[in-house]
């Protein structure tokens, strides 16, 4: 990896993601405004924005970055291969560009969501992260500086959205490497194991006296504890340092696995109809 190749990849990737993201977000905002106005008009004949709110915009952002992280990886790998850039550089810059966009998105969420919610009395300014790590108003209630509380949520929002992007990247890396048959098998496993495999395993193990549900519940409780989530913490306050560290660690592990998968992957161009 050279400074030039990394920078070039990174710039190209950020431009590609951010444009799509801005488009999507603007579309979502405009749609929300129009739908609320229409709904209010339908209810009481007034075109108002009462009830408008964008709670859990951080969750939506995480979902978007999951999709975009997955959607763009193949393109970034291929663009790198087309321009003398190694797989490692393409992947590392993809991770960096996704992190940058996550931070930008978290900033957008932190600023825009409260602004939109303030358009209406009934709008609520609450992120999904607040359900997990405690509400902003809870920390302010106990005397924490409002600026510090918001910075902390911005950081956690960035990390959680970035983690979602990394999950998308990991999936995309697997699909990039796998053959057509492998891709089909992988997809079937993802779809059918939770839907059928788990219930079948649960029933089968129950006959042998093993309660799979309670094992899984214990497992997920431990995961929640590892991520410092509030409701296993005995308080409305989650453990941010632990949560942030675990998110970063998980992202790094995913990035490493993705690198192992793509480092020797053949460039797979997108199909063009008619070719």
């Amino acid at each position: 990896m050279t400074k030039h190749s990394f920078t070039a990849s990174y710039k190209y990737q950020v431009r590609r993601i951010i444009f799509m993201l801005i488009l999507t977000l603007c579309a979502a905002l405009v749609a929300e405004i129009i739908l609320v106005a229409i709904a209010n008009y339908g209810i009481d004949g007034r075109l108002t924005l009462e009830g408008i709110g964008f709670p859990c915009l951080d969750a939506l952002s995480g979902l978007m970055l999951f999709i975009y992280g997955a959607y763009f990886l193949a393109e970034f790998m291929n663009a790198g291969a087309a321009n003398g850039v190694s797989r490692t550089t393409s992947l590392v810059s993809a991770i960096a560009s996704n992190f940058t966009v996550s931070a930008a998105l978290a900033l957008f969420v932190s600023v825009v969501s409260p602004l939109i919610n303030s358009l209406s009395d009934s709008g609520s300014d609450i992120f999904l992260l607040e359900f997990i790590y405690g509400e902003k108003k809870f920390f302010e209630f106990y005397g924490e500086n409002a600026f510090v509380v918001r910075i902390r949520f911005f950081i956690m929002c960035t990390l959680s959205v970035f983690l979602c992007a990394m999950v998308g990247i990991l999936f995309a890396a697997a699909f990039y490497k796998l053959s057509r048959v492998g891709t089909v098998i992988f997809t079937l496993i993802i779809v059918f194991v939770p839907a059928f495999g788990y219930p079948m395993a649960s029933i089968s193990l129950a006959k042998r006296g093993i309660d799979l549900d309670s094992c899984m519940k214990k497992f997920f409780t431990e995961v929640e504890r590892a991520f410092g989530m509030a409701h296993v913490n005995g308080s409305q306050a989650g453990d941010f340092v632990r949560g942030g560290f675990m998110m970063l660690l998980t992202a790094v592990v995913m990035g490493f696995i993705a690198w192992l998968i793509v480092r020797r992957a053949n460039a797979k161009p997108a199909a063009i109809r008619g070719d």
């Binding site: 990896m1 050279t2 030039h4 190749s5 990394f6 590609r16 393109e75 291929n78 663009a79 291969a81 087309a82 321009n83 003398g84 850039v85 190694s86 797989r87 490692t88 550089t89 480092r263 460039a267 161009p269 997108a270 063009i272």
Partner: peptide, 21 residues
């Protein structure tokens, strides 16, 4: 192999299109 310093000196016009269509 996987070396940007070396690969940066090359460019290939291939049959397949590697950019996003």
């Amino acid at each position: 192999r996987d070396n940007d310093k070396a690969l940066g000196k090359l460019h290939m016009m291939g049959e397949q299109l590697l950019y996003a269509p």
